[in-house]
Design a protein around this nucleic acid. Structure first.
Lengths: 232, 232
DNA sequence: ATCCAATTGCTTCTTGGTTAGCATTGCTCA
DNA sequence: TGAGCAATGCTAACCAAGAAGCAATTGGAT
């Protein structure tokens, strides 16, 4: 699963976290592996993340967390500390029976920033905070996350400025679904999805906005709307 | 996952909460980290929130709660720990002094049946089931419950048929609030509330419905809309 | 009305993560 | 054996985030 270098790096990170409580920076890792450049570290880190050994926040200093260790390394990763119910989504399989003393059927999802429901602007970026959502809303498979809606383009669908929408990650959608679409790898936008031959129509739920029709290569579906939470 | 500064601040907050039962103010944190300005604290706090270690209420004094601790700090967040008040409402007053590494900041509210947003029909009756709602939605005082909305009379307020609305029990309302009103001790209805002298106007958010104006004796406010949850 | 606390804008400096391009090594497969 | 590929290594430039400071404002409480 891991190459030697990857394993070395993982071990080093682990040691540092245990010792300091603070994960090393790229420069520190570079020094530890006796490299002269950070780019190698970057690749190794990417590989570790891809393999599920670590988790990180993009573009955040030292935002690395070890998720599991290879068996060769005392395995049993998170030993002693518990399932992370906080981040991301609940792992498949039956819910971990423990945890909640009293059963609150809910889980925390990360809010990945705002999405411009009006004129598309911001891309989905970083975690700003977390929000609890009812369990049934995210039942089933797939990863979920939340976004704060900006603008009024979906107002006729009952989605107001400031609402938090819950999104299930998926790359496909059916006609009429409300989706998070990435347009030209640039703009993330919340719109109703329609396929018209080889083109995709992204339709706002507000007559003031025009429907955008784009060739399918220019549109990537990132997720589908599964829930909405509004606090007055 | 955390930088040194972030970790230091988290440790300090933890210590203070344990010692006093009350989280420190920005100024106290500023002093503890030996800074000359609070803005630095603000940023660190934001980072901690983003990383899911704390949770907070915006614009509220000392409204910080530690959600989890890094493993390096005796971590052990969700384990072994104590029940949280789930049913009913959040207790007022300071949270229990210990850390509540509760996995999910949410609580279950009873759904008290359906409310006709259109023509008023059903009265609030029995508990049909429960839903989890985000903690911050019901923060503050008062009892809360949920209702399922029937009809389309509030559709221009972004409240659709089938939505679940979260209501805080209260007997009073300000102009423009969306309330659950009991009309002539008979019909419960979800409408916008306006006082006009001695009369009460209950206004739908849908031009197809007429505003009802009633003498104030005939209208009892039962609760105020504080949140909305929709599952697609 | 006043105080205290939190939020925000702006500036500056430092630290740290991201990328692109190119070279090297070791391995597998035809 | 040599093409192809994956993993690494390096340089170097770039830019975003962390950290701090000051000042002005807003929100809550009393």
């Amino acid at each position: 699963m891991l190459t030697k270098k990857q394993l070395d790096l993982l071990k080093f990170i682990q040691k540092r976290v245990q010792a300091d409580g603070v994960p090393p920076s790229f420069d520190e890792m570079k020094a530890a592996l006796d490299l002269r450049s950070k780019s190698g570290i970057h690749r190794l880190i990417t590989a570790l993340e891809e393999r599920g050994f670590i988790r990180r926040l993009a573009h955040r200093a030292r935002a690395i967390e070890i998720v599991k260790l290879p068996e060769s390394l005392g395995g049993e990763p998170t030993t002693g500390f518990s399932p992370r119910v906080i981040e991301g989504d609940r792992p498949k399989g039956p819910r971990p029976a423990n945890i909640e003393p009293v059963a609150v059927d809910a889980l925390e999802l990360p809010v990945m920033g705002r999405i411009a429901a009006g004129v598309p602007i911001e891309a989905i970026s970083h975690v700003s905070h977390h929000v609890a959502v009812p369990g049934p809303m995210v039942s089933g498979k797939g990863q979920h996350y939340a976004l704060e809606v900006r603008g009024d383009s979906m107002i006729d669908a009952g989605i107001n400025d400031g609402d938090v929408v819950v999104i299930r990650e998926t790359a496909t959608a059916d006609n009429g679904d409300i989706v998070v679409a990435l347009v030209e790898d640039q703009e993330a936008t919340l719109k109703r999805f329609f396929r018209r031959g080889n083109a995709i129509a992204l339709e706002a739920a507000n007559p003031a906005y025009e429907t955008r029709v784009l060739p399918e290569e220019k549109v990537k579906v990132q997720g589908r709307l599964v829930g909405l939470i509004r606090t007055y």
